[in-house]
Simulated assay, not measured.
Amino acid sequence: PPYFKFDTTNLQAEASDLKSAAGTPQYVAVKHYGWRNEFLSIFPNAVSVRVVDGPDASKGIPFLNIIILTLFAALVYAIWVRWRRFKRARIDPTLERLEDDIAEKQGRFARWRAGRKTK
């Protein structure tokens, strides 16, 4: 989701306050969105900073991401199923009817042409 960040300076100040010395390290977890792209030098946008116990602290389970992706997959599946039903019920019979009409007209034309050649 787009984050309309109006508190960027506050987040920068908070991150600067959490800077620690090498002797007594303080670890933080940065919540961000976006991806790191080395070619275009794009960096993820930071949303929040929080103190954690150590460098191996678990990030937790991203329940919101799981729910959003599951709902999106269900929506795509529902649209796909409805399209297949629509195609099977409306488009395929129309195409078959058109193919039959074309075959019939080609057959009549072939019979007409064959009759013209014999004369």
Results as ranks from 00 to 15, higher is better:
53 D>C: 02
81 V>A: 03
27 Y>Q: 09
18 L>S: 04
50 R>Y: 12
16 S>V: 07
107 G>N: 13
20 S>R: 04
4 F>H: 00
14 E>M: 05
14 E>R: 08
4 F>T: 05
98 L>W: 11
57 A>K: 09
111 R>D: 14
51 V>I: 14
86 F>E: 07
43 F>G: 03
48 S>W: 02
63 F>D: 10
84 R>P: 01
98 L>Q: 15
115 G>S: 15
7 D>Q: 06
108 R>M: 13
38 E>F: 14
74 A>G: 05
59 K>F: 00
67 I>H: 07
54 G>E: 04
55 P>R: 13
60 G>C: 09
36 R>A: 08
79 I>H: 00
82 R>I: 06
54 G>L: 00
40 L>Q: 14
102 I>T: 00
31 K>M: 00
41 S>Y: 09
46 A>L: 02
36 R>M: 09
2 P>A: 12
28 V>T: 07
68 I>H: 11
29 A>H: 02
73 A>M: 11
84 R>C: 02
21 A>D: 09
107 G>A: 10
46 A>T: 00
24 T>W: 06
79 I>D: 05
91 I>E: 05
40 L>D: 13
116 R>K: 14
24 T>E: 07
61 I>N: 01
65 N>V: 00
98 L>P: 04
66 I>P: 05
86 F>I: 07
77 Y>A: 14
23 G>P: 01
77 Y>K: 03
68 I>P: 02
33 Y>C: 01
59 K>Y: 03
25 P>H: 06
106 Q>V: 03
20 S>P: 09
86 F>D: 10
106 Q>C: 09
104 E>C: 02
55 P>I: 08
106 Q>P: 00
109 F>D: 13
8 T>R: 06
57 A>N: 02
71 L>P: 01
67 I>V: 15
17 D>T: 11
58 S>M: 06
35 W>Y: 09
88 R>Y: 07
70 T>A: 14
10 N>Q: 15
105 K>N: 15
103 A>Y: 04
24 T>H: 08
11 L>M: 11
68 I>T: 13
43 F>R: 08
92 D>K: 13
60 G>A: 10
103 A>N: 12
65 N>A: 09
108 R>T: 07
70 T>K: 12
20 S>M: 00
10 N>I: 05
69 L>Q: 15
46 A>C: 08
60 G>H: 05
104 E>K: 03
38 E>W: 13
69 L>Y: 03
113 R>A: 14
67 I>E: 08
85 R>G: 11
44 P>G: 01
105 K>T: 10
52 V>K: 02
112 W>T: 10
38 E>P: 02
29 A>C: 06
101 D>V: 10
58 S>Q: 01
109 F>C: 06
37 N>L: 07
108 R>A: 02
111 R>G: 04
3 Y>I: 08
51 V>Q: 13
25 P>A: 02
107 G>E: 11
42 I>A: 07
6 F>M: 03
30 V>P: 01
50 R>H: 10
1 P>Y: 07
13 A>E: 14
95 L>G: 02
38 E>C: 00
85 R>F: 07
4 F>E: 04
19 K>T: 09
29 A>F: 05
119 K>G: 11
2 P>L: 14
58 S>W: 11
93 P>I: 02
2 P>S: 13
81 V>P: 01
12 Q>C: 01
50 R>E: 13
111 R>C: 01
107 G>K: 11
9 T>F: 08
31 K>R: 06
32 H>I: 10
